[in-house]
């Protein structure tokens, strides 16, 4: 899933400066799961902003409305708030960056992000999420025992580990596992460590973001 976290409330307050009627829009997908922008967070955000404005005296008389959509990354769900979106002068999206853009493209009002979209990852434990996929567009996990060096190695080294691997940890951060230690251990366990002796050639980054914004088309299901 896409993992995101809320921007500091003070920053959101600044983004909404001068707005008299604000619509906070949540999303029931990834950001609900990582508890950054689901219905619950929408309500909390609404309360927090109202309290902030009440105590600070800013945005006097401002009104906050709330909605939570099934998804903010598909036009038909975006359409569901057409009426209320017409009544407000600012929309605060608690979705990932995708949702913010869908709302901004559809509605001619000031749309601002309430979250910082972090990465494609998953839960490590309750309340902890970790990055797993670099969205590089050309998966090489079959070469590395199912552990991604593109995103989990701090230097995206494809022929690792570098000289900073120490006791299984990355030189950048003692809390970060060295991806290449994990790869080495797993390939050893699988009896395939000899595969790591092959030189992995330079990656074709044109399949990644470096090739420009990407598009996926599945022709047979288009209407």
């Amino acid at each position: 899933m896409i993992v995101a976290e809320q921007k500091p409330i003070a920053e959101i307050d600044r983004l909404l400066e001068g707005a008299k009627k604000v619509l906070i829009v949540g999303c029931r997908e990834c950001v609900t799961v990582c508890q950054a922008g689901g219905e619950k967070e929408v309500n909390t955000m609404a309360s927090a902003l109202r309290l902030l404005w009440a105590t600070s005296g800013r945005n006097p008389g401002a009104e906050i409305l709330t909605e939570t959509l099934e998804r903010q990354c598909e036009p038909e769900y975006i359409e569901q708030i057409v009426k209320v979106a017409g009544e407000v002068d600012a929309i605060l999206s608690l979705a990932c960056g995708v949702g913010v853009q869908y709302l901004a493209e559809r509605y001619p009002v000031w749309v601002v992000p309430g979250l910082n979209t972090k990465f494609a990852g998953g839960a490590l434990e309750q309340g902890v999420w970790t990055e797993k996929c670099g969205l590089c567009g050309d998966c090489i996990l079959y070469k590395t025992g199912g552990i991604c060096p593109v995103i989990r190695c701090s230097k995206s080294i494809l022929n690792g580990p570098c000289g900073g691997s120490h006791n299984g940890k990355c030189e950048v951060n003692e809390e970060t596992d060295c991806a290449w230690q994990l790869i080495y251990d797993r390939m050893t366990k699988l009896g395939k460590v000899d595969r790591l002796l092959e030189i992995e050639p330079p990656k074709d980054w044109s399949k990644s973001r470096d090739g420009g914004p990407r598009k996926v088309v599945k022709e047979e299901i288009r209407i």
Partner: peptide, 26 residues
Amino acid sequence: SGDHQSFGNQQTAKNVYDIDSIQLIN
């Protein structure tokens, strides 16, 4: 490979690592 930018005096830099040291050698 080079030391990661988080050790230096430009910690907010974007790193490149387009190719790694072995690919560079080659």
